[in-house]
Amino acid sequence: MSLVPVTININGTPTPAQVEPRMLLVQFLRDELELTGTHVGCDTSQCGACTVSLNGEAVKSCTLFAVQADGMDVQTIEGIGSMDDLHPIQAAFWEQHGLQCGFCTPGMIMASAEIIRRNPDPSEEEIREQLGGNFCRCTGYHNIVKAISSAAAVMREKGAEAGQAADD
């Protein structure tokens, strides 16, 4: 089985590698790059623990071969924010107790970013429906829904501030 050369832009860093075609993007992230924040919770593309952003859109990195991401931008939980500079969604999950065991959390946060990207002001019902691809066994989703609502509000406010600053 020949290896295929790829260069994937991971969290802003062009990353060249030789990969076996059957290596999934999630395995590439976890096993080759030690970016273990992206998790694997199922093998039928349902739990969403592996959610990352590909060219700006959320995808399930367990349902994509690494070779397919050649030349593309991948953002993982490690790239969305850091302990010193939390993304508003990360901060909201913390603030609202939107996680317990933490295993689904990276995928939840990446999926939340997608929900807010598509609709900056989602209703509770929309949030619940749009979370259909992410399973959490700990929280009953209650505080996850609250976290996404509150993150969206913060991001709208920040967007408005940024817009205002640009106007001034």
Binding site: G37, E78, M83, F93, H97, L99, T105
Partner: peptide, 21 residues
């Protein structure tokens, strides 16, 4: 009180068994 353990989980720094090689 906000949870002390959360910063590592929300930033992808959780340390689970399968993360260890």
């Amino acid at each position: 009180v906000k949870r002390v353990e959360d910063p590592r989980f929300i930033t992808g720094q959780g340390h689970y068994t399968d993360d260890i090689n």
